[in-house]
Each structure stands twice: as C-alpha cells, then as structure tokens.
Write a protein that binds this DNA or RNA. Sequence first.
DNA 1: CGGCCCATTGACTATGGTCAATATAAGTGG
DNA 2: CCACTTATATTGACCATAGTCAATGGGCCG
Lengths: 257, 257
Amino acid sequence: MTARSDPAPLLASQDCGDCPIRTRAVCSRCDGGEIATLEAMKSYRRFAAGQTIVWAGDRMDFVGSVVQGVATLTRNLEDGRTQTVGLLLPSDFVGRPGRDLAPFTVTAISDVLLCCFRRKPFEALMLDTPAVGQRLLEMVLDELDAAREWMLLLGRKTAREKIASLLAIFLRRQAALWTPDRRGAVTGVRPGTSFDLPLSREAMGNYLGLTIETVSRQLTALRRDGVIRIEGTRRIIVLDSLRLRSEAGQDDASAAA
Amino acid sequence: MTARSDPAPLLASQDCGDCPIRTRAVCSRCDGGEIATLEAMKSYRRFAAGQTIVWAGDRMDFVGSVVQGVATLTRNLEDGRTQTVGLLLPSDFVGRPGRDLAPFTVTAISDVLLCCFRRKPFEALMLDTPAVGQRLLEMVLDELDAAREWMLLLGRKTAREKIASLLAIFLRRQAALWTPDRRGAVTGVRPGTSFDLPLSREAMGNYLGLTIETVSRQLTALRRDGVIRIEGTRRIIVLDSLRLRSEAGQDDASAAA
DNA sequence: CGGCCCATTGACTATGGTCAATATAAGTGG
DNA sequence: CCACTTATATTGACCATAGTCAATGGGCCG
C-alpha cells in the first residue's frame, strides 16, 4: 500500500493511431472522425503502483481506459475484510456512464496509465456516437460473464481449485501473447508455460476469497505435487499444464465445449 | 426439479401498452413507433416451475424479458456442485445479443412468462434503435454491479452474514412494493416486515455458496436469537430489521452512504 | 393411509482460518 | 556498502466454521 516515488509508464506517442489498446478498447469501433473527437477530449493520467485511483463511494467525474498496467476493483466490509471483484487490464474500461458514485475502490497494483474523459462530455458523446455505446455494451457483457464465472469459483471451489484456476487463467493469458511463429524462440523453458504473477499473495487471497496463508500453502502443495515450480516469489513455471487445468475443477459448460 | 403439470401465468392483454414491465424492461425507452416494431416481433413463451429454459453451453437463438415469475442463472462443476450466479425477476433480460451459446443455465423456479424475440432480428433492430441498446447497457451495468456485490458475499461473508444478507435483500424488495399511502393498511404484522421466500433451501444454498443444512441451521439460529420468525417453511417475519441488517455485515461503501 | 419431497437436527469431520514464529526480500539511512 | 527497518512470504500448531453423513420430522398429493 506504500505509494512509491513516481509512476513510470510513458507512451512513446499520444496519437490514438499509435495507441496499444486502439483495437480492443471502448473506442475500437470508432471511425476517423469519431476518433478525432475523442482525441480532443482525452487526457492521460498516471498512477504509481499502490495508489488508489478511486475510493468506493466517492464521486467519480471521469471515465477512461486502462492503457498500461494492472488495477484491482475491490470492496470492503466494515471490519476490513476485502474482496477483489475484478482485475482491470489494458483496454478495460473504468467508470460508469450515468452514475456519479463509484461502487468499488480502484487501486493500481502496478504503475498504471489511464486514458481519461470527463464523464459528462463522454455521456453526451455516447448519445450520438453509437459505436462507443455498442462496444461498451459488448465489453460490459463480457465482464458480466466473467464476474459470474468468478462467482462459481468463490462459492463452490476448494482452495486448491481456486489457486489452480487463477494460475490457469494467467497461463492462458500468457500463452495468448505468444504468436505461433515465435514458438521455440526462447531457451530453457517452453513458451507459454511460465509467467510472472501480477499479484502479491495478499492480492491473490483477496481475489480468491482466501487468506494469504492458505494461498501460500496451496502454492507450496502444487509445487510439492510437481504441478508447478516457483522461482523467487512471483515467477511460476507450469510443469504439467494439463494437470493444472484438471486441478482447477472444470465446469461442465467448458468441459462440453 | 420436477416439472409440474402446466405453466400458470397468463396475461390479461398481449398489448405492450398493458405490459407490467413496460416501464423497466429493455423496451422502456422506446417510443410508439419502436414499440410497434417490437410488438410485431415478440412472442410469449411460458415455462412451468422447475423447467429449464436454456442449458449452459446450448445454442440460444432468442433473447427476451421476464414478464412474470422468477428464474435462476446457474453454473455447475463437473461433479455436480452448483452455483447460482443471478436471479431473474420481472423486467430482467435473458440472453445475450452477439453470442450464440448460453454461458449459464436458466431455470424457472416459479411459473415464468417470457417476452421473446428471435436473436438475429433483435440484433439487427438494436443497430437502428439506439433506445434499446442504451437501456440494455444501463441494465447490464446494474447487473454487473450486483454480481460484484455478490462476489463480496460469496468470498468474504460468514454463513450467518450470507443468510442475513439474503433476507435483507428480500425484505428491501418487499418494502419497495409498499407505497407510503398504503402503510398501516394490514393487520397484525407491520407492512414491509415480512415476505415469502421465493427460493427453496436448496436454491438459497446454491445462491449463497452453502449447503442446505447450513442454510437451515442459520435460519434456525436467527429465529432462536429473536431476529426473525418463520411460518411454515417459506414465510419470514422480520422482528428486528435493524439487527438483521447489522447481521448482514455492512460493507463500508453502503455504510458511508 | 402411504409415499415422496423438503426441511430440520444431530454427530462427526475436514477444510481453511487464526495466531505466532521465522524466513526472505526490499527499501532506508548512516 | 552495510546495518537496520519494514514489507512480504512461508511454515507450524491449533481451532472454528461449515461440510458430510445419517436419522427424523412434517407437509402434500395420490
């Protein structure tokens, strides 16, 4: 929670044409003219790892897209228990048109760069730029499905299944970054079989509804059982990805697919 | 799970003007002309309590609104563990434009009446009827917030807090049905202090991530402690609604508000 | 009346939480 | 650069909460 010196992320160019999330963010359906309008409205905001971007219950007068970095959406009980209800990755949308109080706390867990719009003008723009609303609907529907999928994990999976599920998700995300033609280009570990955890043990616990001790013990157990190897505290090498996925407790819809 | 004889719900009129969910459903923003278009496309489908409306993973070629009755959205693990990820109440939207496989199983838990549209024509209509997409976005954003709120319950609340939270929600919903001028019109129990559970113990357990035994025990405990009274198996009389809400484990955003 | 379904209750167990000690990184300042 | 402080992670011992298994009770329908 210690806010470190200064946020690092920088963009080589502030031109929307060069934007790394141009094809997936809320603006991805916009044509040239629409992008020009957005470009005139946008402003970048940077947050250092550990910084809170918005507090649950606070007034929120902007919306925006995560350009770089990772943030968490969390909610707390009065006595301090914390549940992470979502991860915000590059291209994810922050904030809610049509509501001025933030329902969840948003915290940067790595240095984060946001592409922001003041909320009121953005809401006005949505009315005559259907491309934005359409894309946002699509994104929100995906997030809703993901949230509900996560409810299955929180409500019904064991600690070991929760950990395996989380690792499987990071593994899949990592694998997706490897395009086929680059396979085999690294030495030692096969590509798509290792990754760095973007979350601390505490953050993992908050996301999975577990304590840090249980997170630690289950990681150790998966290591002892030969499913993974752990280097330092953040690097995970998956030795048996098939096993990992079966340990995650397949739901039957995915199994059928 | 036994499908009973025949679905009961009937509408006095099939005219959209008389529709009980006209002001809250996905069509609520539509003007006369748009409603006429929808009216030409719609068809009603009825489901008896216990019937499955769609199976997770199945192709889904329609979307629609719940007009009457209650349905659950659920997801299963291979070994049969079940998690309910949402309740569908009148005016809620079923199905997802732009996706043809249903991610969750939808089951009628009372007799249900759906106002349906074939998916493809509905998707086409959304493109030139912004009112529908705008309203749908608003509804989906609300559902996303509700799902995330539920994640806090599933991940971090104790069994007692889970039960108290569920009862508090039903109580609030019930209280909302009482308009101020009708207060005091019933005898015995004060209005807004009692309600019928729309869910069986099993369905409650599936929604809260608990077993039916734990649900039963916690209800008994709340009764013993004088927070509620239970009549038969479905009727709950809340004796101390303040206590009930505090037992639910307030989250700090709500506490602040 | 008998059977079935649903709910309740009890006894026992197991999973994961709590508390505490130790280890390991990772900053901080002399 | 090293001692010191502070965060973060691991491990152990113990305990509490909720799950499992099983028996019993109650309502409803044929």
